[in-house]
Design a protein around this nucleic acid. Sequence first.
DNA 1: CCTTGACCTGTTATGATATTACATAGATAT
DNA 2: ATATCTATGTAATATCATAACAGGTCAAGG
Lengths: 167, 167
Amino acid sequence: MHDHTPPPPKDDPAFAKHDHHRCAGEGLARAEEILAGRKVRLTPVRRRTLEILLEDHRALGAYEVLERLAADGFGNQPPVAYRALEFLVDHGLAHRVRRLNAFTACRHSGQDHAPAFLICRQCNAVAEAPADAVRSALDTTADKLGFVIERSNIEALGLCPACRDAA
Amino acid sequence: MHDHTPPPPKDDPAFAKHDHHRCAGEGLARAEEILAGRKVRLTPVRRRTLEILLEDHRALGAYEVLERLAADGFGNQPPVAYRALEFLVDHGLAHRVRRLNAFTACRHSGQDHAPAFLICRQCNAVAEAPADAVRSALDTTADKLGFVIERSNIEALGLCPACRDAA
DNA sequence: CCTTGACCTGTTATGATATTACATAGATAT
DNA sequence: ATATCTATGTAATATCATAACAGGTCAAGG
């Protein structure tokens, strides 16, 4: 792509300041909770992958994640990252942001979630907005056509509050 | 990817039968109308690219479009296709379906449009659903966070009526 | 007319993203 | 303990996308 190592966004979860260490820790705890019920394992690679995503309030490309995994002694071939990321996405612990070809930790796991991503074209911040209303409008639309939605991706590009003010 | 030459979907614009020849012709006419106002040209490559997208009620990859363009005597290097496609997208004559890394002709050009794509995971049909309601819900959501939306991508994966019935 | 500049097209080369296929190792269940 | 299922590692390759530059077309103004 072209914007490969963007500056880390100032703030982000909904573009407001927050206690980051706490929100990362909670993410992991919630993940274990969620997976406990299902017959799947949060293996070391998977766990570490989630940690990596949680450490950063931005969307990371698969190869970026891979580098970090390799640095930690895991394999250094693409499937290592893609598989772990796919696992996390399948279990609702992470989301794929298609516009950026990137992945981000889910900030509302556990809750029934239909996320919408708000991507700032200026600072690259990515906010996961609660999108229940959006999703339900989408369901209604699909319903009229007899289409059954299984998964959805809702993404918007624009300006976050900080960048809009700066402009 | 993995599903590179899918069988053409049975029906599609909203998954219902329709007079295709007519809908393709209208697409072109509408394009010329729209561009007339702006100071841009619908050059041969661009026009042919739009035709190619209109011919098919599915999303085509850039390389797929490129092959057809090359067969018609245009250049056969990726930028040829990407540039024409980007032009069409910028002017609202086509849309990019990110989930499929593909492009599709806009079926509602001219109208103020915020499309939502319903993608059948079985037969690969892609319907462009009117999503004004969805878009307005999204605007409301973004507004609460002070985020200004400039472009949006709304895509859903699931089963179209035909495939659901077949299952 | 004929030059200038904007824009379009073509091509080479390369970069970035993602998957297939297969081999090995670890966990689970009987 | 052994069969089985799942997960990991690696090599090779497929797929998608862009940068950079050269040459061509066309309309506007001198």
